[in-house]
Design a protein around this nucleic acid. Structure first.
Length: 359
DNA sequence: CAACCGTGGGG
DNA sequence: TCCCCAAGGTT
């Protein structure tokens, strides 16, 4: 049983003094701006989001601006932030709002939760932060606090645990000052009750925190929660011509969908077949192979880069939109794994012999 | 329900 | 270096 505690008052009092009130998405409470921030913040830490958020609202300051944007324009700003389905969902949502809602952003929980990419926590966050409405939220930070504070035992399934945690947060979320409570508990979770080395000494909850009182702040939400890591291998073909490279916009792919990437193949043979098909002259393909390991969530991707230099631009035919991109202007494009790609192309323009070392 | 989607930071 | 994980939602 969850015993009544001054939990919410402790959080709200703490928030008034220490809460983060200067985050870029705290300057205005317009629901559109809060929506963008909440989508960006899904599974993404505050410091990572800030520059992307600023860039996004600078380019699309309001609903009508975003409604005129193409998917590619949205993706180009999202490039590097990850979880690109979120950008696709923003595009879907804004089109719906344009065509069916007369540019009016929904302000009810029932409507919000129907929108793509908006679940219980995101809908609750949007409404509590922009309108001050009473909705609980439950994210990773809050889960961690609850598990420690009430010293919850690991449950047999994620489903059971989630249901349990939602019940608790619904009980302790205050009807008044919901927005301050929600923001405060997020701030405590991400800055004090951290996963590793929590700063219990300065925590406003320490007086009533069971894990702290019995000196056991290590927690686990589930028994034997092991992540399976898959090993995959890909061959990317990099065709270089006079400071331009060939990129394809990925279609119907699980990863980097809609983004521009080097043509990807799942065997060396298929990569060679592609080159042969388009009659790309290449003398030392095997010598130009460069290997790189890239981690994507639960995938270890072993990448082989097949680097080919041509001195004339080839007209390819593929099913995908495809372009020659100026290497120096690549930052304006919605590229998958942009940091990796930019570093790659930087080395590429300098000296091919440094390829193996530089990466 | 478990797997999946990205990337960067911290220990 | 390696492993874990983060303002979750979808299938």
């Amino acid at each position: 049983m969850i015993i009544k505690t001054p939990f919410s008052n402790l959080i709200i009092n703490w928030y008034h003094i220490y809460g983060r009130k200067n985050l870029p998405w705290k300057k205005h409470k317009h629901i559109y701006l809060v929506w963008i921030s909440e989508i960006m913040l899904q599974q993404t830490q505050v410091n990572t989001v800030i520059p992307y958020y600023i860039k996004f609202i600078k380019k699309f300051p309001n609903i009508k601006c975003l409604a005129n944007a193409s998917l590619n324009e949205i993706l180009s700003i999202w490039s590097g932030l990850g979880y690109y389905k979120r950008a696709h969902n923003i595009y879907k949502t804004i089109q719906l709002i344009k065509k069916e809602k007369n540019y009016y952003f929904p302000e009810s929980f029932e409507e919000l939760i129907k929108l793509p990419g908006i679940g219980k926590t995101t809908a609750g966050s949007i409404l509590s932060f922009s309108k001050g409405y009473y909705f609980s939220i439950l994210d990773t930070n809050i889960k961690r606090i609850l598990v420690r504070f009430y010293y919850l035992k690991p449950q047999t399934s994620i489903y059971t645990l989630e249901k349990y945690l939602w019940n608790i947060i619904n009980l302790i979320t205050p009807i008044y000052n919901t927005d301050k409570f929600n923001q405060g508990i997020l701030d405590v979770g991400s800055t004090i009750c951290t996963h590793k080395n929590p700063k219990c000494i300065i925590c406003p909850l320490k007086k009533y925190c069971i894990a702290y009182s019995i000196n056991d702040i290590n927690y686990s939400l589930l028994y034997n929660k092991k992540k399976k890591i898959k090993n995959k291998k890909s061959w990317f073909i990099i065709i270089n011509c006079k400071n331009h490279v060939w990129l394809e916009q990925r279609k119907l792919q699980k990863i980097w969908n809609g983004l521009f990437c080097f043509p990807e193949f799942f065997s060396f043979k298929k990569a060679c077949q592609w080159l042969k098909k388009y009659q790309i002259y290449n003398r030392n393909l095997t010598q130009n192979k460069v290997y790189k390991n890239y981690k994507i969530s639960n995938i270890k991707l072993d990448i082989a880069l097949l680097i080919i230099n041509v001195n004339y631009k080839i007209n390819f035919y593929t099913k995908n939109p495809n372009f020659w991109f100026n290497i120096l202007k690549i930052s304006n494009i919605s590229v998958g794994m942009p940091t990796f790609t930019k570093l790659l192309l930087q080395q590429f323009t300098k000296n091919h012999t440094h390829f193996n070392k530089g990466l």
